[in-house]
Design a protein around this nucleic acid. Structure first.
Lengths: 150, 150
DNA sequence: GTATTTTAAGATAAAATACTCTTAAATATT
DNA sequence: AATATTTAAGAGTATTTTATCTTAAAATAC
């Protein structure tokens, strides 16, 4: 799989946060309830995003987490990099460590193009876009985000 | 990552086999030496390919493994499916289990298109093509296959 | 048939990932 | 100050992936 489970949890929580009032702190308990993700585990995941300064957190009553920047300014990619790191797609489809530097494997060009497309998409899609589905044929992602367990 | 380590080992060994005389059995010991992969682990990996009938194996002296079909008739995809299964790329980038059935997340269309491209490439590239680099600018993949450790 | 070569299979170990539980620290309310 | 709320941090557990080691089974050669 391209993204770890942990990363997908982080993405879902971020999109959910993006759908809420960006000023208020939202408790991780609330997020974990709506997303059906274990509270303790989600806490760990969101700590990563907080350390990366994509989220701001606040302890104590009325505390919680919120996006550190407007949802339009945080990309899918930001979340992915924060949790899974920069190398989610290997340089070479065959895992050849030297591929592309001096010589390349036969898949190289196609692979680089596809990798580029995926990264480009991740970079160009914001949490705001993910939170509000714009195409008429598509329902809001939030319904799925919340209702599904598996 | 898209493909497991195990799968990449299987791919490398298959490409190496494709570069050799397709009639003779090649010992796993020889493959593991050339690829710098642990003999015992490679044995396990190739057992999967043998079970999937992509390789033929033979025990005893002068035994080993060889491709079950001509290298031109075995695809990158065949190897990947045999080792990592059919679902190497999730339906939905956000891991939403229901995405695409009734409603879709905002990434859906782009994601499906990219997934299709990757699968198409894997399906259209044969072991023969991987074994003999055809583009002048590209070195043969075998040099990398053999020489690199990591 | 005995020894040798080689894959097959199983048991075990190590590492990475996923997840849980407990305690500490910070903040707010009373 | 005392208590409740909430994130942070750390320790611990479980599962999956990766890798190793041992033994068994099959085939050959002598």
């Amino acid at each position: 799989m391209l993204l770890s489970n942990t990363c997908i949890y982080g993405l879902r929580a971020s999109v959910l946060l993006a759908s809420k009032d960006g000023e208020k702190f939202v408790t991780i308990r609330e997020l974990s309830n709506e997303l059906h993700i274990s509270f303790h585990f989600l806490t760990k995941v969101l700590q990563l995003l907080t350390k990366s300064e994509l989220l701001t957190s606040y302890k104590g009553p009325n505390g919680g987490v919120k996006l550190a920047r407007p949802a339009s300014e945080i990309t899918f990619m930001d979340i992915v990099v924060s949790i899974d790191g920069k190398n989610i797609i290997k340089e070479c489809a065959l895992g050849l460590p030297g591929c592309g530097e001096i010589a390349s494997c036969p898949l190289h060009d196609e692979w680089v193009a596809m990798k580029g497309n995926i990264l480009k998409m991740m970079h160009s899609v914001s949490l705001e876009q993910l939170a509000q589905s714009k195409n008429p044929g598509q329902s809001n992602v939030l319904a799925d985000l919340k209702s599904l367990t598996a």
